[in-house]
Design a protein around this nucleic acid. Structure first.
Lengths: 335, 335
DNA sequence: CTGAAAGCGCTAACAT
DNA sequence: ATGTTAGCGCTTTCAG
């Protein structure tokens, strides 16, 4: 079967000891340049690759990190992953992506799978459905480095990177107010997500600042983060059934924006569609929906920062107690 | 640091030998039910997880497979990945995703990284830019099981799954002919991709069948698969500059459809936009672009089939010589 | 500068 | 039904 060449084979062929070969391959200073060259040449010629399993087992390090996001088919997360990879590759780390699909069970399984020594650290953006954090708390307590990005939890102290959700939400809502809309609804994400509370706060701030009374009945949550289109449609139908329909909607996320527009298309004639503004990193959405004002998160940057902080935790020789909670600014895209 | 409990720890605590514990944990028939229970209980209580590195090193198997796609932020590939995962998890395999971004170098690096024992097999959809297949041929020659899906190569014999691209392209083109369009352009993908030739063939078939002469000047290739928006815009600008502009375009892929619509939005007033039909698995595109006729590939199914075939290769006790090239039918979505 | 030897955690012959 | 032992491929003291 698939039987790659090992360090022993090289040693034998070159009449050296395995340890010398190992050292030569990792460019150790205590190896003769001549020997190094011989070894490296032979290795390349026979395209030797070090067995990462053996190497990790021995070193207690895998040089790979795990990323847990709800889904990759999402512009925000895919750009964040690009950012993560850009830093990781530069520092010699490999990235393993896994999707929770916003489901609690999948998240638990995936994290468990990644955790046990298969990765040196974890980059997590929480699933929408997760309310119980014990699977993560346990790993953290055991010493596994973890950095949260975008959707964070405060069950314990660690590095985090988020967007300035509150301000972004405020700016988005204000853009609707500025355009003259009075009755602005809010289609929110799952209630226990960090981003949900922050964006709600921004929405409330904007209303308050412009003297518009907060109307709780204009806020609808999507407990599955919009993964189930029905829940979005129910929310939209609810808005449509209100005695006074909202004339604008501030939508909390990319996926919800998609679902929201789709639901309105399905449930109401075009002239009854409200104006929509919201968080989105999709190029498609703003491409095809001319009047969609969106708040862009610096996804790539967030990925980069998160990865850098994780590497810092992993490579730190001493326990880290000084944690950073970095907040990056969002950008308003107007049409 | 992160020091998980091992099989030895359990053995010591329970006054058993490591092998007994190992066997108990893998539910071996030769272990006393009583002992099994004790071991499993203890393991769960102290949340033991087997170290996958050690296990893989010993067994010469990693129970994980690598997937190489151009990008995950693409409805077709993300659904294919869902299909792959659905089969993989059921059979106890872990899936490692990696993106080539349609770049040759990234593809080579990623495949090398996955290959050496880190995975038991590879599921590959070729990058648009790749013309030299030696990195894959080598691995295959060394015995690594490889299955191609969607974008295949014929450098060697192995299992493949593809959509019926030729027929899909024909149906899409015909739908444009049926709507009365006469001058139908084709925005094609990178020339060396398998899907490009097949879809071009279908386009030609449709024209021929309806007595429309083939006009080479109506065909433009995108060598980077649309990753570079400029190349799409150049193609569209070329169409717009033709003395007789095409009144319809058949587009070869999801990403190109996006780029094509976007380019027309940018370069021409709405009433000069041609009708567009093409391959796409995007929910957004057909949601927001009312007159977009699309050909859907059975992405999820393709993922499932590919994974099943890969597992068959991996688990086969003897070299496999009887390879299957499965072709799945596409579906036309009309509006 | 190079080699010998031990061991990372796990599993599978080979005992018993 | 359980224990003993060896070894997967690599790195890393320790010893020359």
């Amino acid at each position: 079967m698939f039987k790659p060449i090992t360090i022993k084979d090289i040693a034998q062929a070159l009449e050296l000891s395995p340890s010398t070969v190992s050292r030569a391959l990792s460019d150790s200073y205590e190896i003769n340049e001549e020997t190094k060259k011989r070894v490296i040449e032979y290795a390349e010629k026979h395209n030797y690759r070090r067995n990462p399993m053996a190497s990790s087992l021995r070193q207690g390090r895998s040089y790979s990190i795990g990323v847990v996001v709800c889904e990759v088919a999402n512009s925000f997360f895919s750009h964040a992953i690009d950012g993560i990879e850009s830093v990781a590759y530069g520092k010699g780390y490999h990235v393993i992506i896994s999707q929770s699909h916003d489901a609690y069970e999948r998240e638990v399984v995936n994290i468990q799978h990644l955790a046990n020594r298969a990765v040196d650290g974890l980059l997590i953006s929480m699933s929408a459905e997760t309310k119980d954090f014990s699977h993560i708390i346990n790993l953290h307590a055991q010493g596994l480095p973890i950095v949260f990005f975008d959707r964070v939890i405060d069950a314990f102290e660690t590095h985090t990177v988020t967007a300035n959700n509150q301000k972004g939400a405020m700016v988005a809502t204000e853009s609707l107010i500025d355009r003259g809309f009075k009755k602005i609804a809010h289609l929110a994400n799952a209630p226990h997500l960090s981003i949900t509370a922050e964006r709600l706060k921004g929405y409330e701030d904007a209303l308050k600042q412009h003297g518009i009374p907060l109307d709780e009945s204009l806020i609808r949550y999507c407990h599955h983060g919009g993964r189930i289109q029905r829940e979005v449609e129910e929310a939209i139908q609810y808005f449509l059934n209100l005695p006074e329909k909202p004339d604008a909607v501030f939508v909390a996320s990319d996926r919800l924006s998609m679902g929201c527009l789709s639901a309105y298309n399905k449930l109401a004639p075009r002239d009854e569609h409200p104006a929509v503004a919201g968080f989105s990193n999709s190029d498609v959405l703003d491409l095809l929906q001319a009047d969609f004002t969106c708040i862009r998160q610096p996804a790539f940057k967030m990925g980069q920062v998160a990865m850098e902080m994780l590497i810092q935790l992993i490579e730190s020789r001493y326990p880290v107690y000084d944690f950073q909670n970095i907040v990056l600014e969002t950008e308003l895209i107007h049409r």
